[in-house]
Write a protein that binds this DNA or RNA. Structure first.
Lengths: 213, 213
DNA sequence: CTGAAATTTTGGAGCCATTGCAAAATTTAA
DNA sequence: TTAAATTTTGCAATGGCTCCAAAATTTCAG
């Protein structure tokens, strides 16, 4: 299980590039920082940057691993007698209550948001992330509900659940961008989650209820 | 009200560039066709292309004017006693029943979809279009419902209604991409719209009901 | 009709993201 | 210690996009 020098170096190099890039982006914005600058600051060649990161946006979103599967995990881990949507609502409430950085409830997240806000390529990347989340969740729901391939319901429910998630994320981003403090926003998100739940139909809230084992 | 030579020429040039570009894209895909080729085929300089179209994607989506305001228009034109969501559902059913090209229910839409499917920048542009639709609708709902600035409901309802719209559009695109014929897809979309309506809560379906005049 | 003013078109130079390729440099393993 | 595997690098090129100043074209006043 020993890790060779080569692999350690690769990991370190990759991390260094990512860190330095993120630092530069937070400081001066996404568009104004060039890949060449990142490379120079990280003391590697431009090609090496591209060896690790397929595109400039990947330098910024390097920390968001596992986000795509998050909703699916929550659904798979739902309690007995609990539906997919209710599991997600419960987990999101927990994140909000815990003032979780994963939700963006942390000091300095406003600078992070500002960079995204001002860079169309980054926003576009976020949308494509949402798409991935949706598709992943749809597949999970299809399995968990035992639906056949032609059934449109898993897709529709996935759409509703992904919408919950996205709505809260956007709201957090918007509020943090205004310079609000995490604790305040946290409480608002709990209210928002209640509002959202009230808007959902029983059909959505009761889809894919886990039976007794 | 006479139109000068100058303005006619501008309109013609713009149209010629757009037409030729779309033709080339449909024939050979979005990424492989360069702006230089479009310019040469349209017998203008590259700079002239950029005079009319801020970015390459605008050459492709030039025909989609007014799409952003569509949902808002439908909501504003809702009948007495009809809610925003029900108005949109009714209009979308009408579009589906009419096998409307605006929904993508037309011969050759599969080639159109294929170009989009294979070009990330075009997909990304569609997402940003969705975003605009949502924001426009949210503003409209806020007005029509007389909600105050802090009320989160117009935003949430706009999210749900925009989701209806998007879901149908995506479904049409997916089916047409498979080579299905418009009439068939039209009928499926009517079923899908029923499925969607069943998933919506009364709160969504009864938001912003127009009172008797 | 004529020339100046306004507007459009164009050429050219340049920046930057991204790709491809082949030559170093480095690490591994025999 | 050397050959093989892998990573890093330099170099060249493509294509989207911007900026700028010089033509070319159209409008309009006199």
């Amino acid at each position: 299980m020993a890790e060779g020098l080569r692999e350690r170096k690769k990991r370190e190099t990759r991390q260094r590039i990512s860190d330095i890039a993120t630092g530069l982006f937070l400081e001066r914005g996404f568009v104004t920082v060039t890949i060449a600058e990142v490379a120079e600051a990280a003391d590697v060649s431009v090609n090496t940057v591209y060896n690790y990161f397929p595109a400039k946006e990947d330098l910024f979103f390097d920390r968001s691993a596992g986000v795509v599967e998050q909703l699916s995990r929550w659904v798979r881990a739902r309690d007995e007698g609990e539906s997919a949507a209710r599991a997600v609502l419960r987990e999101m409430r927990a994140e909000a209550e815990a003032v979780s950085p994963r939700l963006g409830l942390m000091e300095g997240y406003d600078r992070f948001m500002r960079v995204i806000h001002e860079a169309p390529p980054l926003r576009s990347r976020l949308w494509s992330l949402q798409q991935e989340i949706h598709d992943h969740l749809e597949a999970t729901l299809r399995e968990e509900a035992g639906a056949c391939a032609g059934d449109p319901l898993p897709g529709l429910i996935a759409g509703q659940i992904a919408w919950i998630h996205q709505t809260v994320f956007v709201a957090v981003g918007r509020e943090m961008l205004k310079g609000r403090n995490p604790g305040e926003v946290s409480r608002e998100m709990l209210v928002l989650l209640d509002d959202i739940e009230e808007l959902l139909s029983e059909k959505v809230l009761n889809y894919a209820v886990r039976g007794v084992e």
